[in-house]
């Protein structure tokens, strides 16, 4: 159980992010959930690289055991890409708010449906 405790934490955070994305209608809340999901992926990559008794991968004659540097590099890239997707998503949210006057998924869908109904009525 203890050997996989870190994985259980990772899965909890991942599923919390998934729940926020699927259950909440607010677009900004969804983006926060998405970044929560992303941080769980950081943990998923970094925890297997840790060695008990190891130290940070900065070479020094005083140490011989280092944790794995490769996941750190990959996750550095992932963090920067994550923040750029967040910024793009927020820009889209701002545009949607301008077009619909709302950032709630339900209200946007209702607006779309009412527009479709109007068009159907006009064509008859």
């Amino acid at each position: 159980m203890l050997a996989h405790f870190t994985n259980v934490i990772t899965v909890f955070l991942m599923v919390a992010g998934l729940f926020i994305i699927t259950a909440r209608g607010n677009l900004i809340k969804k983006l926060v959930g998405l970044s929560l999901f992303q941080t769980s992926v950081y943990l998923l990559y970094i925890t297997p690289g840790k060695l008990i008794g190891g130290t940070a991968p900065i070479l020094s004659p005083a140490y011989t055991v280092y944790s794995n540097p490769l996941p750190h590099v990959l996750i550095l890239t992932a963090i920067v890409v994550g923040v750029s997707t967040l910024a793009l998503g927020l820009a889209l949210t701002v545009r949607i708010r301008e077009a619909y006057g709302s950032i709630e998924e339900d209200e946007i869908l209702a607006l779309d449906h009412s527009v479709e109904d109007d068009e159907a009525r006009e064509s008859h």
Binding site: T55, S67, V83, L86
Partner: peptide, 25 residues
């Protein structure tokens, strides 16, 4: 977890830049 570079980036980008972006939105 010994990932000092990642922690620095997460504190600067995750807690700093993301929060500013979200507040601006």
């Amino acid at each position: 977890l010994d990932a000092v570079d990642v922690a620095m980036t997460e504190a600067a980008v995750g807690a700093g830049v993301s929060t500013v972006l979200l507040l601006a939105a």
